[in-house]
Each structure stands twice: as structure tokens, then as C-alpha cells.
Simulated assay, not measured.
Amino acid sequence: MTNTDNLFKVGTIVNTHGIRGEVKIMAITDFPENRFKKGVELQIETKQGLVPMTVQSSRLHKNMWLVLFEGIMNINEIEKYKTDDIYVASDERQELEDDEYYYDEIIDSRVVNLTGNVIGIVSEIMTTGANDVWVVKREGQPDALIPMIDDVVKSVDVDNKLITIDALEGLLD
């Protein structure tokens, strides 16, 4: 496996599109129009290592991004990348507003209640539609599902990986 420590996954190539070398990408980024715009350099993670590619063109089609990379002239040159993940370098990440966070800033954060008692550690984030739900691993108890809403999440300290929540009645049952 390649080292993707300073890279962030933005999608997966799920298939080719047509014979001219376009690929269908399932995006997992809040900024696909920026990630897949002309001139952006992406990294494709293959079994042999990372392959840098520069976006020549892109367009949204049926909830998938159709992307053509520079230097790719036909389907035969791109087909080998089907099912491979696509990454962007950390310095290409978008600056976020206050109270917005990248997943990697939340994962492994310690969650405490308003009195400072440790509830657990965020292990994953589920995107359910209306709001994200943070899965919190608890010692000796089932995982807690914490909705990312203002009534529950009171503060997020990204630098110290500490999240304070108001454990409303029934939330941790």
C-alpha cells in the first residue's frame, strides 16, 4: 500500500465513460467542483503506487463526475484505474468556515460531556443526509451515535482533538 499520509481521499473511479478516456468518479468531497476543475493535480492510488494526473476537463453527469485527465487519449489508457481511489494533496484543501471540519480532524477526537466526563473516541462519521452522525467508541458499552447538531455538539477543539457535547436525555442509552 502506498503512503497517503499527506493526501486526502476525494473519490473513487467507478468506471470508464465512452471511448475517449473519461472516467466516472464517485466524489466524497464537499467541494467536487474545485477538486475536479481543469488544472487540478490529483493522485490515483494504484497497487504499484501513486500516479499523478492533472484534470483536463470535468462535468457532473447523473450524480457522478466525468473527468478527463491530461495526456489520456482513449479508454485503453485509463481502464486500468477502475476502482482506484483518488486523492488530493493536503495543501490543496479548501479553507473551511468556523464550525466546519474535515473528517480527519474529527476522527480520533475525545468526546466529553458538559462536566468533562469522557464519553469515548470518535471512530467514524456517517453522512445521513440532514446532518452528520459521529460514531463514538465507548469502553465496555455499545457505540454512541452523536448527531452533529448545535443542540448536542457544544464545542470542537480541533487542535486538542476534544469535543464537548450536551448529552441530552436518551442520547447515550
Rank of each mutant, 00 (worst) to 15 (best):
N63G: 02
F36V: 05
V55L: 09
I121Y: 07
S109Q: 06
T46V: 03
I28E: 07
V51K: 08
R59V: 03
D91S: 07
L96Q: 15
L96E: 11
V55Y: 05
L66C: 13
D91I: 13
D84A: 15
E41D: 08
L42I: 05
E95G: 04
R93G: 08
S57P: 00
Y102F: 12
R59W: 06
D91V: 09
M73A: 12
I119N: 10
T127F: 14
E124I: 05
V55G: 06
E97P: 01
L114E: 09
V40S: 05
Q94A: 14
D99M: 11
D108A: 14
L60D: 10
L66Y: 14
G49K: 04
K80D: 07
E70M: 08
L66W: 10
P52R: 12
N117T: 15
F36A: 04
E95A: 13
G39Q: 07
D84F: 05
N74Y: 11
M64L: 15
F31I: 04
W65V: 13
I44N: 09
R110L: 12
D108Y: 11
V88C: 09
Y81W: 14
G129D: 01
I107L: 13
E77F: 00
V122W: 01
G129V: 04
R110C: 08
T83M: 07
I125Q: 03
Q94G: 02
T54P: 00
Y81T: 00
D99N: 12
S57F: 12
E92N: 13
L42V: 14
K38A: 11
K62Q: 15
N63I: 01
T128K: 14
V88A: 13
W65E: 08
R93S: 09
I28M: 15
I107R: 06
V111W: 12
L96D: 07
I107K: 15
V112N: 02
I106D: 02
V112H: 07
E95T: 15
I125F: 06
K38I: 05
L96N: 07
E97H: 15
N117I: 10
E79N: 11
G39Y: 05
V118E: 11
T46M: 02
F36R: 13
D85R: 15
S58V: 08
S58I: 04
E41G: 02
E105S: 15
G71C: 03
D99H: 10
D108H: 09
H61V: 13
T83A: 14
T54C: 00
H61T: 03
Q43T: 02
S58Q: 09
V88H: 08
Y102D: 01
